[in-house]
Computed example of a mutant assay.
Amino acid sequence: MKLRLSLLFWVGACTLIFAQDNNFYQVVAEQGDGIFSLLRKQGLDPAKHYGTFLELNSDKIKEGSALKLGEEYKVPYASDSFKKKGVLVEAVADSEAPIFNAELSQMSVKSDKLKDAVYYLIVENKVESDGSFTKDTAKRLAAELMEHGAQVYVMGEPSNSNASKGIMGEYVKVINKRYLQNMGKYQRVLLLRAGDLSQGSALDVAVYHYNKSEQGQRFAHHIQNVFKQHSVSNTNVDEASLIFEDENSLYLAKNILPAISLLSLESSSKTAQSKISLKTNKTKFANMISNGIMNDYADLEFEN
């Protein structure tokens, strides 16, 4: 009996030590690092995790928040880290990596408005050379949503710029898997599709939804309304909410579990009568989309 108790105590002690070791990881302090800057660079809210950092490194921090250059410090693992809140998903391999790295030091928590929201962003560029605008917009949009508490998954692009039904199937698989993992939360998919974008030109933005999805239509409607409020176009904005017709969009809409909307981007044309015209300002464009997304979430929360 004594031997059995001793073994149980030893196993329990080892388990506790192992768990404690897995509550943190180590980083090396760089030139100019203090506690706040180091935590920010790791995607953590300094105000929230300052105390935990002090506890983990009590043997190394003697005065104030100064850190020693080249010294290793323990950083707590945290579910609210921007490294975990923003994830780039490689669909074929179903692997994950943080969306942001060097940019983390510039990000900060703005609110928890979207703390129970999960978004999946898909970028599809029909013309490979013109993909930077939509990629940058998706990253800016992801950052804005994350800073308000959302979980964001960005789908990595296929090697072929023209997305096939095959890669759409991979998107369905990885999105549905994460949808089930986040069951009970508000979840939406936004597809950004870029056509032939000319450098510095105005954009025609069309907002699409699946006609059999009330949530998707509502999601598109809120995004559309923000464009209506800010657009300088004389286009009848009621015509700008269109129905999925192409094969890829319909395949996604019919097979993924979350509701989906599509923003289609083209260089402005005088003949484009059913689209909203917008100058190609990435920051403004991303902010308008995020405002529409947050309005959809807030409206749903208000109804509930």
Rank of each mutant, 00 (worst) to 15 (best):
L242G: 00
L16H: 07
V123D: 07
G131P: 00
L203W: 06
A253Y: 01
R218S: 13
K165W: 09
R218M: 10
G64D: 06
Q224F: 03
Q151D: 06
G195C: 02
I99D: 02
S201D: 03
V11L: 15
Y251F: 15
S277K: 15
C14V: 14
G131N: 08
Q229I: 12
V174Y: 04
P158F: 10
S267M: 04
M183I: 12
D33I: 03
N248G: 05
H221P: 00
M294W: 04
E303Y: 07
N236P: 06
N236L: 12
N125Y: 02
A150P: 00
D80F: 05
Q224K: 15
S277E: 15
V237Q: 03
L263M: 13
D112L: 13
G43A: 05
A93P: 03
L114W: 05
K83R: 06
I17S: 08
I276C: 02
T283L: 13
A259E: 06
D296T: 10
A143Q: 10
N287F: 11
R40L: 15
N182Q: 11
G169T: 03
N255V: 00
I289G: 00
N287E: 13
S213L: 09
S65H: 11
N281Y: 04
H230Q: 09
E157M: 08
V226H: 02
Y210P: 00
W10H: 09
M183C: 09
